[in-house]
Design a protein around this nucleic acid. Structure first.
Lengths: 252, 252
DNA sequence: CGTACGTTTGATCTTTCTCAATAATGGTGG
DNA sequence: CCACCATTATTGAGAAAGATCAAACGTACG
């Protein structure tokens, strides 16, 4: 009931707050932004490379991902997005999209017209700072992915992806009990780690055999978080969490 | 003579201008920022993971790079910086550094105290937009690196790195005649592409044998830019250039 | 002018990819 | 509710890109 009456942008507030405090006025201004809700099927694009979009989407429910494709057609996923995250705030400031954003699952998106959003951000230093911060955190995550893909072996890479996903879900208050439905096929997992689906399959089996994870369908449980974290070489510093430390009941 | 008298931050202006127009007042305000020049030796750090810096460095001369190190000690370079680029504007908004920035060559850096810079940016929407834009362009470059390392083979990866470097040098007006002194050892090149130095060496020899590049010491000339670009699968869209199109005499 | 660092070469090994086939799953229309 | 189809997961065998190890060679600079 309460759920239903809330403004869909509340989740965005939660996300922003996790990096930067907002005054009640800031929050009111954000929630007052005009937006249009849109239901999207799996695989639906919210943004395509080359587009010149005039709105910015915030993910309300479901999962999405960013990717690019090489000239010869192989795909690389460079981010997974969970509810509450801004899918393309870069549209506020860059004309042309340099990559694709696509839904991983069915879900809902709030589309905010570019102009009022830009005005709000630029006229309000506190909100500008908040947007800068999560833009910078996103960049930090990309750097960690470069490290992950460039310098870790398949086993660590996949473990790292799992850790990051779990950690961010926790931080957004979206997960319980160390059980995560990772809404990705093994092929998508492969595209996110620079591997092939066949190899991902073998590595996942290996992690399970070692007793680090349990799998049932797409549902992955973390049997031994501490050891998985070691295997992943996962250090959450790059996520620049803030409320994170205390909040992570399940992950420490 | 003229060179000597210019404000070192002029190069920064040029960089910003290449993405976003600045009014004369904006430019004056930027050039009026307090800063301290510092001479740095090769390998000197301007920023270390875990630092809590209170100033932001702009590269005035020489080259620098960003990198992270995994738990078992392998290094991944995630960006090369050329004169005029901001080395750590993220310090303006994030407390703790999540990666290292180190000089590639001897060079000079202008250190701007965090507070006045932050104030200038947040109080001036036009400058805020400019800073947002080049922050977003940097993020776009990280995404392309994820793609490059995750989905291209060694030959394309290295070719891509060369193309990007050349293109950005051109855009900053720092290079002439398709000859680039790439100030990196083969080991650094390896760390930037997720390869080993031995393999980088073999690939560079291959590119030379194919007639795509010429090498003399560290100096690389682009013998066949068009073909190298094809091999690299290089599409400069992700650099979000603006003055780029017309300006690239040598590269088209 | 010698020493540390960077480059080059060769031989061998390993991880991961490729190709191909089979099995399981999930969603759909009848 | 069931049968069917498309997608996803799994398995095996063989190939390949790139890593590793080790040594020799250059060369820049102190």
């Amino acid at each position: 009931m309460d759920q239903v009456l809330r403004n869909p942008l509340d989740l965005l507030l939660r996300k922003i707050r996790s990096h930067h405090p907002l005054s009640p006025e800031d929050e009111a201004a954000i929630v007052a932004l005009p937006f249009r809700l849109r239901n999207l099927e799996p695989q639906a694009y919210t943004l395509r490379e080359g587009d010149l979009p005039d709105r910015c989407a915030v993910l309300i429910s479901g999962f999405a991902f960013r990717h690019k494709v090489t000239g010869d057609g192989s795909r690389q996923i460079m981010a997974i997005h969970i509810p509450g995250e801004a899918l393309d705030f870069q549209n506020m400031f860059l004309r042309e999209s340099d990559h694709n954003v696509q839904m991983l699952t069915r879900g809902q998106v709030a589309e905010i017209p570019r102009a009022p959003l830009e005005e709000l951000v630029l006229d309000n230093p506190n909100i500008a700072r908040a947007v800068m911060i999560f833009t910078l955190v996103e960049a930090s995550i990309f750097r960690e992915w470069v490290l992950n893909i460039g310098r870790r072996d398949a086993r660590s890479r996949i473990a790292h992806l799992l850790c990051e996903f779990a950690y961010r879900m926790e931080a957004q208050g979206l997960s319980i009990e160390s059980v995560y439905e990772l809404p990705m096929t093994q092929e998508q997992l492969a595209d996110a780690t620079g591997l092939t689906a066949v190899h991902v399959n073998r590595v996942l089996q290996g992690l399970q055999r070692e007793g680090l994870i349990q799998r049932e369908r797409r549902i992955i449980s973390f049997v031994d978080w501490q050891r998985l974290r070691d295997v992943a070489d996962f250090n959450p510093r790059y996520l620049h969490g803030r409320e994170f430390e205390g909040a992570l009941v399940n992950l420490n």
